[in-house]
Amino acid sequence: MLRLLRYIGHRLYTTWATFWFVLPFVLTYPLQWYLSRRPQHHRYLHALNRQWARLFILMWGVPVETIRKQPLPPGQPCVYVANHSSYIDIPLLFRSIPGWLNIMGKSSLAKVPLWGPIFGSVYITVDRSSAVSRGRAMVQARRTLEAGRSVVIFPEGRIGQHPGQQLDEFKEGAFQLAIAAGVPIVPVTMPLNHRFMPDVEGLRVRYSPLAIILHEPIPTAGLTAEDAPELKQRAFSVIASALRPQAGGIPEASTWRKPAPAPPPACQRTSA
């Protein structure tokens, strides 16, 4: 009975969370499409995206712990580097980081129906299997920083294989970019997103607290390209230090059926 009630609760909460994610987008889609068609209006579209993220996270009813280790440099563009563990990483970043952001996401995001073309026209998309696409994305990011707009990059390049427990190896591009542009690196840790919506087949949503930690900016003034590996390792250590291994692992799939009993050991089957 408890298993059935838990299953029903999971299904109801998943429906609730999906409803509040989809409804504001549907209602504002004509405005989003209009703003996405005109580059001079992209700033307002990002502001709309931030309010959308704030609304649906609020309606999810989950507590969000936001920690800022140090005030961010006013008027200073930065390269934010964050761990990647869930589909909700981008909304939580939009909700928590002030200003007009650009974000580097995988090219497949631009193929999502309705929302994808809007994302692809306003933000940076990259096919990480293509050297040409990676180079083009870095050029776009450099121009973004030169225009005074901060950039968010996931240096793992994908959702981590062990979310909440350990980070995948960082790529060096974000750190080369920050050094070349002379802007600070801001490490960001999101230790609990995988508990709410993990990267699994299908849709799996679980009520869970969220947290985001914006660490102290790391200056890059005076650094050269040769310092990128050390800068990368420093940011890696800072982000990893705020993970919460006790919250690691993926929530189990929900089912109302009792699990089938495990088969007896092979030696017992043989002797029988």
Rank of each mutant, 00 (worst) to 15 (best):
W100L: 09
T255K: 02
R257P: 14
Q233L: 09
A225Y: 14
L4I: 13
R68L: 15
L114F: 15
S237Y: 00
N102Y: 11
L210Q: 05
T28C: 13
L192H: 04
R204F: 02
P191S: 12
R11M: 03
W16T: 01
N193H: 03
A137Q: 04
T15V: 10
M190Q: 10
G222H: 07
I179L: 05
P264E: 04
A147Q: 15
P74H: 06
V238K: 08
P198D: 01
A53E: 03
L48K: 05
V126I: 14
T66S: 10
G222T: 05
A211H: 02
A53W: 02
Q166D: 09
V152N: 06
Q140G: 01
L4M: 09
M197R: 01
S254I: 09
P198T: 03
S133N: 12
I8K: 09
A178S: 13
E156L: 00
A47S: 14
H10D: 04
N193K: 02
A17R: 02
F56K: 01
A211V: 03
W115I: 14
F170R: 06
M104E: 12
R54C: 08
L231M: 12
L92T: 02
Q165I: 06
T220F: 05
R54F: 03
I8W: 11
R6C: 07
P24D: 11
F196R: 00
W100I: 12
W52R: 02
V22E: 11
R206P: 00
I8R: 09
V188P: 01
I124C: 11
A242D: 13
L101D: 08
W20A: 07
T270E: 14
R136M: 14
P77G: 12
T220W: 08
H42L: 08
P24Q: 08
L203V: 15
K171D: 06
I179V: 15
P191N: 11
E201Y: 07
P30D: 11
G135C: 09
V126P: 05
Q70A: 14
G164E: 00
P219K: 13
P98M: 02
I90G: 00
I213Q: 02
Q268K: 09
K69G: 08
A82K: 01
S86V: 08
E252R: 15
L45P: 11
W33C: 10
R204S: 13
F119V: 15
P261L: 04
H41Y: 13
W100D: 15
S121W: 09
R3C: 07
V79R: 00
A235I: 06
I90Q: 01
S208W: 04
R143E: 06
G99D: 10
Q161H: 08
R206Y: 07
C267H: 11
I153H: 03
P191H: 12
W256M: 11
A180L: 07
T270G: 08
A266K: 13
